[in-house]
Design a protein around this nucleic acid. Structure first.
Lengths: 253, 253
DNA sequence: TTGATGTATTCTGTATACAAGATTATAGAG
DNA sequence: CTCTATAATCTTGTATACAGAATACATCAA
């Protein structure tokens, strides 16, 4: 503490409260991020085997960080590991998808309620900005960017609810459902952002019940849309001219 | 696979589709269970450092399985690991506890609703049995046993809801809150089981809304009780004559 | 004594090695 | 030609080794 103050004076720099070492993530974390991205972006498809040594070679690290990364992803539900048989990218049965959606809907509803009760001005302002960007990009944006924006909106909404535990659970469920909802047309993306707008409106108005209902419906509707609109080509290879973002998904909730 | 082993034990029936090798869990899993038990039973207290090599020596294994076990527990929220500084038993701030309770209350409410809609006869029968046992033991039972029974009741109720995702989340949250609620008097344990009875009654009656409300209140009330009734001695050492089960907890929800 | 500084020790992060289990390929019997 | 048995290969599970970061300790100056 005193040392920090000293270095502050010496360098004249503001007292960033994170140590220099905090910038240096362990390999395990870097590898986890790489694999997670590969899964969420669709480069590794559900069911694909994740062989430790192969990944280790790809990333030029030893198997240990890879193992730990795989286990971490497994505990988040993105990877499935079977003893002595190794890891695969998680795939979900229709029942599981349905269950995840129901839970997510409930949690998003709860969170919207909390957010509406709080009406944190800073968060609302940030949400407005992301909403504007999302609406603008929805019709024509590229899949990967829309997924990123959608994630930002939901993360901000979660932050507005001020419940970290809840936020973590929602993010985990969102990532998993994204794996399923990834391919979504521009039309659906547009509707997705209109629903976001409606949720935010209710939050701003402080109408907790309305916000909750809208957030819950938002998730449930996306599930229904997915089933109704189901694209058979979603399961095909990546050689459809959309490049590596092909499976990035346009506007899943 | 844990479930499979459990049902196996419960039924005493030789498993149909169970390969012999499935009985042989990796060391990592055995170590995970050991450490988890130690944490949940209070032998390792919140904040205590979990040093890999020390644990490895205790269990007579190398550090690798221990590392993986610690990471697994970390992802379940029972252990906290800081890069380059190692693992400690998780401790929660009052805010986090409050947040966990709120989320748990919502999820238990949702699950009770699902269970009431289904009214699975087999599950209800099993719940009745556990309820009877819990009620009988509540006044005088030893802490560790009451925790076990309480866990069984909630697990069965979760199974009755028929949503695995939801069940997993509830169990994870229950374990974490148990870490906090562990010390609970016999009186509170009795009330705990009366609330269980009320929930089950609503489930049996098929009254989804009532079941949800009661389950939600059940969790929230336990949180309030905990704050109101807070025992200062909960944080003291184990030398109070209750032995190694001292922190096992009588009747947290 | 108190505080700073350098040193020893402890612990984690990562790499490597090897044994045992699983998978695939191959050969032979029917 | 299909099916089974067996060998060859691949992969995971676990142990061990070592480098670097974090912590504890001892030493010395004020």
């Amino acid at each position: 503490m005193r040392e920090r103050a000293a270095s502050e004076i010496e360098t004249g720099r503001p007292p960033a409260d994170l140590a220099l070492g905090d910038l240096h993530s362990p390999l395990r974390d870097l590898v986890t991020e790489q694999i997670r991205d590969a899964i969420l972006s669709g480069r590794y498809r559900p069911g694909a085997r994740l062989i430790e040594e192969r990944l280790a070679e790809d990333f030029r690290v030893s198997r240990n960080p890879v193992r730990e990364a795989l286990r971490a992803l497994a505990s988040q539900g993105l990877v499935q590991v079977t003893p002595r048989r190794g890891a695969t990218v998680a795939g979900f049965s229709p029942e599981e998808v349905q269950e995840m959606i129901e839970v997510r809907a409930t949690l998003e509803g709860m969170n919207a309620k909390l957010a509406a009760r709080r009406r944190d001005p800073g968060m609302i302002e940030a949400l407005r900005r992301v909403l504007a960007e999302g609406r603008a990009r929805a019709p024509a944006g590229i899949a990967a960017e829309l997924v990123r924006l959608n994630g930002r909106f939901h993360d901000l909404l979660a932050a507005a609810g001020h419940n970290r535990i809840l936020a973590d659970l929602m993010r985990s469920l969102r990532e998993r459902t994204n794996l399923v909802f990834a391919p979504m047309s521009a039309r659906l993306a547009a509707q997705n952002w209109e629903e976001h707008a409606a949720i935010l409106e209710a939050v701003i108005a402080g109408d907790a019940e309305l916000a909750a209902a809208r957030a819950e419906q938002h998730v449930l509707r996306a599930g229904t849309r997915h089933l109704a609109d189901e694209h058979p080509e979603a399961l095909r290879g990546a050689g459809d001219g959309m490049g590596k973002d092909a499976a990035g998904g346009g506007g899943a909730p």
